[in-house]
């Protein structure tokens, strides 16, 4: 088995008496989509925030590309190649779609302490950004401020920004949230191809998408992974059906 890109080991996080993350271990291997599902309040976003570095765990370790990153800042983890998207779109509202992506390209190239050369005529930023806009189908909206994009377009831009980071792993927090059935279908097909570039840890409520995409599924309930396995295994797991899937499966 290939060395995992991302490995979470016995992670713990409590808010007061509530154990939001209670000894979670999971990993992400090259080329796979690992879906993380669970009912509301199961601690999925808390887990993603700890992996991304926005929240410090109480105990446990997070290894990324073979390196212990538990103590690193969000920015440092992103520089190593960990790209996350947010459950509620988190973009730069005043900047155009293009500039949102250009900043990601700039971050990947390293130096932001360059003070004189204008970015808008910097083709090492504009060209890759335009290419990514074309890939997600937002070319026509390149000059529109992110604040004026539709909800669906903002979701696409979130993904585009993550792509521009050319990451070693994606953390996607409910990318389908609030998208119509058509949008979900298009995005599902898009993510299907994306796993070739970098593995994806996918938090998602849309079960059609999860079952279509996931190589592995882990089920989180009350801060604990109650089951982990292939789509078929998860669908037939009695405990998962009782705790979460209900009649949907």
């Amino acid at each position: 088995m290939a060395e995992p890109v991302l490995a979470v080991d016995r992670l713990e996080k409590a808010f007061g008496a509530l154990k939001a993350t209670n000894g979670v271990s999971l990993d992400l291997r090259p080329g796979e989509i690992h879906a993380l599902i669970g009912p509301n309040g199961a601690g999925k976003s808390t887990l993603i925030n700890q992996i991304a570095g926005a929240l410090a765990p109480d105990a446990g370790t997070i290894r990324f590309l073979g390196r212990d990153v538990t103590a690193l800042s969000t920015a440092a983890r992103a520089r190593l190649g960990l790209a996350r998207t947010f459950q509620v779109s988190s973009l730069l509202p005043d900047f155009s779609a293009l500039r949102n992506i250009m900043l990601a390209a700039q971050a990947r190239q390293g130096s932001s302490l360059r003070f004189l050369r204008p970015v808008l005529s910097d083709r090492t930023l504009t060209e890759p950004a335009m290419a990514i806009l074309a890939r997600v189908g937002l070319t026509a909206r390149a000059d529109v401020p992110a604040a004026e994009l539709s909800h669906g377009e903002r979701r696409q831009l979130e993904i585009a920004v993550a792509l521009a980071m050319q990451p070693k792993a994606f953390l996607l927090d409910e990318p389908m949230a609030g998208m119509g059935p058509e949008g979900s279908k298009t995005l599902t097909a898009f993510l299907d191809g994306l796993r070739q570039e970098a593995p994806i840890l996918l938090v998602e409520h849309d079960m059609d998408a999860v079952f279509a995409l996931a190589d592995r599924v882990s089920v989180l309930v009350y801060g604990q992974v109650i089951a982990s396995g292939s789509v078929a295994e998860i669908r037939s797991d009695p405990e998962v059906r009782r705790a979460y899937l209900g009649d949907a499966a």
């Binding site: 730069l92 005043d94 900047f95 250009m102 700039q106 932001s112």
Partner: peptide
Amino acid sequence: AALEASRQNPVRLAALG
């Protein structure tokens, strides 16, 4: 660009690295 991004959304800026 980075400075204006830090004003608009520092969480996003950090997530970019």
